[in-house]
Design a protein around this nucleic acid. Structure first.
Ligand SMILES: [Zn+2]
Ligand SMILES: [Zn+2]
Ligand SMILES: [Zn+2]
Ligand SMILES: [Zn+2]
Lengths: 135, 135
DNA sequence: CTGAACCTTAAAGTATACTATAAGCTGTAT
DNA sequence: ATACAGCTTATAGTATACTTTAAGGTTCAG
């Protein structure tokens, strides 16, 4: 399988595959006599692993960590669980941060909706005034 | 007020202030005889506006939009409310995406915890296998 | 044999929001 | 006088995850 076939099979771009190789997310493939990359099904499996891992919010560097933990030998469940806990904590923090933002935004929007004063929109005024006490 | 004083007053870095100016988030200040930037309290207010707007999750380009909508004249509440609605939709989408990720991660972690098989960790196996049916 | 499709590399561009560096001018305190 | 803080500009670096470009070699159909 050359790079274009692998790309078609997995839905990744050729350049992305080379990029992942440069990040050591994919093993260096063997080369044919013309220097072209030649892949097997394990490479496709690895690439799909990366795609799925990305879809659950892992960064490429986290995915490399996961590959390093689990490649070849036994999967080191203890490390994997602690990895998952760290990531879950991150995700939950992000959610709660966004919920704070959501509340702030909808509060401001509510102020604007109930004010009726187009000259001093409380959405804008609140952002302008809350921090500096016009000294 | 020179740039250093404005920086101290608002907690922004001098370079950040110049950067915001280059993005037209801050008006070009007047210059003194040596070419130094000279600011007034309105500039400080504007800078704090940017800080607060960032704290509720707005990007610099969204903040520029908000400034363009509201600067000088009446605040155009209708546009502001539609802006807020767009942003709220974004934030809610992000939250729900993260909640999906949270569920996937904790499900995988649960699989690992209840398996006891360190040789084929279901966390890794699921990511490896779900997409390609080892053809 | 020519052109299209496919492969190679290295380097630069994209987006976001800064942060740092270089090289140099200004202002003030001692 | 001179050190030191503070100002100027333009340019490059950081992080993430690609995408694009340039310049060229390979393979195969017609
Ligand atoms: Zn309003
Ligand atoms: Zn006010
Ligand atoms: Zn496990
Ligand atoms: Zn399997």
């Amino acid at each position: 399988m050359k790079i274009g076939q692998l790309a078609r099979k997995t839905g990744a771009e050729r350049q992305t595959i080379r990029y992942y190789e440069s990040l050591r997310l994919l093993d260096e493939p063997r080369r044919n006599s013309s220097g072209y990359r030649v892949y097997d099904d394990d490479a496709a499996r690895r690439l799909m692993f990366i795609k799925r891992a990305k879809s659950i919010g892992l960064t490429l560097s986290e995915i490399r960590t996961l590959i390093e933990i689990s490649v070849g030998k036994a999967n080191r469940c203890e490390e994997i669980r602690s990895f998952a806990e760290d990531k879950l904590r991150d995700v939950r923090e992000k959610i709660s941060h966004l919920q704070t933002i959501e509340k702030a935004l909808s509060d401001l929007k509510g102020l604007c909706e109930s004010s009726g004063d187009d000259l001093h929109c409380p959405f804008i005024e609140t952002l302008l005034d809350d921090c500096i006490k016009e000294n």
